[in-house]
């Protein structure tokens, strides 16, 4: 529990620092900022994501600490067996939807003669299927 809090704090620090560095470079050192090209937006995205996720975790922890009833309700909602089933079913359908999306993307790349992108698409599709099969075997042994 405490480890999770520290992890969230570290994530928040990394996230805020990343965003601040990007803003600082944009304002005062635009030449350096531009030298990173489009990659800097990846860092901004990761930084913003980390900040949001860590801040929400820390805020909810603080709220649960001051309001035990809210914490209890949140725990019930999280562990409610019907809702767990709903989440599992949604994830199962999402696997199939992702499969069709990856097939569509790969076929589009093939049609556009974008070979590298098509191979990347097919690779991701294969990985999607292989990981599913591995998970099936693993869960079949443990359940």
């Amino acid at each position: 529990m405490k480890n999770k809090k520290y992890l969230s704090l570290v994530a928040l620090c990394i996230g805020v620092t990343t965003v601040l560095i990007n803003i600082t470079m944009d304002v005062w050192l635009p030449t350096i900022s531009e030298s990173f090209g489009t990659y800097r937006w990846v860092f901004v995205g990761i930084g913003a994501g980390l900040t949001g996720a860590a801040a929400s975790t820390l805020l909810s922890k603080k709220m649960y600490k001051t309001n035990p009833e809210l914490a209890r309700q949140a725990r019930i909602n999280e562990n409610d067996e019907r809702y767990v089933q709903v989440r599992k079913t949604a994830a199962y359908y999402m696997w199939f939807i992702t499969l069709f999306v990856l097939v569509a993307i790969s076929l589009t790349f093939v049609a556009l003669n974008l070979k590298i992108a098509a191979w990347l698409g097919l690779g991701t599709l294969s990985l999607h299927i292989v990981l599913y099969v591995i998970l099936l075997f693993k869960l079949n042994k443990t359940m």
């Binding site: 909602n77 067996e81 809702y83």
Partner: peptide
Amino acid sequence: EVSRQTIGSLENGRYNPSITL
């Protein structure tokens, strides 16, 4: 220690409970 929606779904027969519940 379940949600109210779960009780509603059980009563309507939309959801079958686990053996524990």
